[in-house]
Structure formats: C-alpha cells, structure tokens
C-alpha cells in the first residue's frame, strides 16, 4: 500500500515549447463524506482540496479540487516548457496536510 502523501507523476517526452500531457496520481483516500466504504459506514470527508503546479518557482496551474474526485485522484494536464527545470506539485488536503513532489523536466 502506497502511503498518503505520495504521488506518481508521469511526464511525457517533452520537446521545447511544445505542449504535452503530464499525468499525476496522488495517493489519498479522498473520502467525499457521502459515500459508504466496504463496511457500510460513511467515512467523514477527507480529500485533497488544492493542487498547485509550479515550474521553476512560477505557478503554471492552480487547481481547486472537490470531494467528487475519485479515490487516489488522477489528473492529467497540459504542460509546455522551453527550458529544463524543476516541476513541483504541491497539494493540500482538508485536514491541512501539505505535500510536495518535485521532478526535473528536460525538454529535448
């Protein structure tokens, strides 16, 4: 079982200045507070509410997430960079926990 706070980030082969689609899966129960679990109980809302994507310190995406996203939220977004640099994902859940994940992007 992967741990809460980790994320998978898959970056495609990037060409300078060309857009490509990045995929991320954030490990989180993302309980909506409305759905029953296996035992029939309804766990309280526990979900990711914000995700920012920065490239070299500059915000390229600011996302507001609702409890309707599936467990282990999957988000695919377009990215275009014209130089190598660090891509940083920062996300926050409704209990205030903040997590980050960084990866180097090297466009050809």
């Amino acid at each position: 079982m992967a741990e809460i706070g980790t994320a998978k980030l898959r970056l495609p082969k990037m060409a300078k200045g060309k857009s490509a689609q990045a995929q991320t899966i954030i490990v989180h129960p993302n309980d909506s507070g409305f759905a029953k679990d296996e035992t029939g109980a309804i766990p309280p809302a526990y979900f990711i509410e914000a995700l920012t994507v920065e490239f070299e310190g500059e915000v390229v995406y600011a996302m507001n997430l609702g409890p309707s996203l599936s467990k282990d939220p999957y988000i695919e977004f377009s990215l275009a960079v014209d130089k190598p640099g660090r891509l940083r994902l920062t996300w926050k859940d409704n209990k205030g926990a903040v997590f980050t994940r960084e990866q180097v992007v090297e466009p050809a």
């Binding site: 490239f55 390229v60 309707s68 599936s70 695919e76 377009s78």
Partner: peptide
Amino acid sequence: KNPQPRVISVNLTPDNGAAYLSVRMRLG
C-alpha cells in the same frame, strides 16, 4: 447530482501550451 456539484476547477496560464484537463471522478 453530486452533493458537491463542483468536481474541479483549474486556473491556467498561457504557458500551459494547450487547454486540456482530464480527471477521474465520482458520480453518485
């Protein structure tokens, strides 16, 4: 029909190259 109708909203910048978003969501 979801208890919280807003699933996701995303602010973009011209630097994104394309306006594209894909997610997996719950539908009650």
